[in-house]
Design a binder for these strands. Sequence first.
DNA 1: ATGAAAGCGCTAACAC
DNA 2: GTGTTAGCGCTTTCAT
Lengths: 333, 333
Amino acid sequence: MNKTIYDVAREAGVSMATVSRVLNGTAVVKDETKAKVQAAIDKLGYRPNAVARGLASKRTKSIGVVLPDVSDLFHAEVLRGIEDIATMYQYHIILANSDAREDREIDLIGTMWEKQVDGLIFISERITPNIVKTFELAQLPVVLCATDDPEGRIPAVSIDNKLAGTDATNYFLHLGMDKIVFLGGPTTHPITMERLAGYERALAESGRELDTTLVLHAKDQHYEAGYKISNEFLDAGHTADAVVATSDELVLGYLNAVRDRGGKAPDDVLLLSFENTRLTTMIRPELTTIAQPTYDLGAVSMRLLTKLLRGESIEEYTVLLPHSILERTSTKR
Amino acid sequence: MNKTIYDVAREAGVSMATVSRVLNGTAVVKDETKAKVQAAIDKLGYRPNAVARGLASKRTKSIGVVLPDVSDLFHAEVLRGIEDIATMYQYHIILANSDAREDREIDLIGTMWEKQVDGLIFISERITPNIVKTFELAQLPVVLCATDDPEGRIPAVSIDNKLAGTDATNYFLHLGMDKIVFLGGPTTHPITMERLAGYERALAESGRELDTTLVLHAKDQHYEAGYKISNEFLDAGHTADAVVATSDELVLGYLNAVRDRGGKAPDDVLLLSFENTRLTTMIRPELTTIAQPTYDLGAVSMRLLTKLLRGESIEEYTVLLPHSILERTSTKR
DNA sequence: ATGAAAGCGCTAACAC
DNA sequence: GTGTTAGCGCTTTCAT
């Protein structure tokens, strides 16, 4: 496979410029010579070297994806959406895990620049001023994905988290639930705070007081953290009629804490979560969720990025994907 | 950030070769000049262009990872292992999903060559002669990961699937179980067949007949397929004392089929699966599994690849990672 | 419609 | 210990 464009040119009896033209369709080539070139390519089994091409053209056809952790189901599904659209547009993915650490994130933006990616899709828990500064320094087209944009200055694809928080809470309110727990990530997690704001709004609109003992902030969005804080909540003698949790794993933590005490869902508590990963239907009871279009979050981000790369004008900087409530057995009595 | 090495050289009053040397530590440079160069780099905010570097050195410091589907939890965890070790050795990951389709896999090996990756980690359900041929054509260092090697000619990191199948079955046999279901992927899936061979061996060694109605082949390794075939099995009036399933999702399918009929685990049936993804502890009952070192499968593969890349001699082509049985509540009465 | 030639930004001999 | 000089394999003017 290690032939060069020059070998093909000689084999076909044309110049390398012509070979380049048929390869890229960058100019009109007579059908006859095109055929000759194609024949030479096939004969030699020639494959263009993307690195050389990248250096010469200054476009690498690869895009960077920075996310906290691929082994998190939500991210993995988003990534799959990114990948599929990238493939469709002939882009490749350079993947990097940040563990949601700002220093790693900033570092990775730099290495993505070094790799000369054409653009970047960035999934993070928290966009800080330092990160924004690094984006500007790197002069990379960036799309934020499933990530709250601080000042709305960076193109982003997300859902309306505050509204979703309100919808989730109202859903339980309409069901006549009284003690509704909000179970989210830490207070430093903007998405959690958005959803919490929605929760508070729904309570206020229904004329209720906010009971802060019902607001639970887990260490992070994962199962273990949810399980831990739920146990603490229940051990303290508290109970709840319903739980709104910001991730599928968190709500599973609550569910199992209840189960470990001999309780059941939906009999003893109604459960609702926010991600709609495949987890929701793999467990019993199946989970009612705010259906975030996980895959689409990635797919739309990538599509937006291709527009940016083609220099198309973007009407809206922040794309809010619609969410909906998917009722499953975890909220049916 | 778009300075070149030449700018740095001029700023520091040295040649670009010297800058390259301090950048790569490829030759001894006087401390004094080294400091000058470093100062220039810092002042200009210079970052080396990895593409140019790749073209000149013929090493890109990136490795390709081809796997069926990132959004599969098992693959995502393996990928995380790969990524961590890759980062440690300063490699980057170019990721591609194959959907386990041979044509895509072959195609992707080609595009990975075009991208000039230094090496390839390949996760597949099935290594065909065509794939092996493409590996040879591409002349890429390849490590198979969690993938059955047909002729043992390609470096691979895996577990001893047959032995694991035997261990799993014996575990139930020792527990006095009688009707043990084997629930796996399709018969075209080599890993399923290896584990099935282990299952059959264990039965034979205990002097039992193989009851083929207890051998279930789902369409694939996913939850939905497991749920479907389990329902068919139960609808046909069959029952089982215990289930050995080749993936965590498959066994969840069986569990939920039983539950939908009012049954319970471990009360009515004991369950054991094979992957030990995070799923196993997120559900109730927690699943007893053959603990495949998921993360390590990726990590060790990547480590093996770095050895290959450094031209180190490899003692053993096939690395078999140890497995063990992790007893959890799904097999405790 | 095609060819010649100049880079892209770096590494790696080869000199000194 | 440091500088000079070819390339790496391609794209892209600029001619023709």
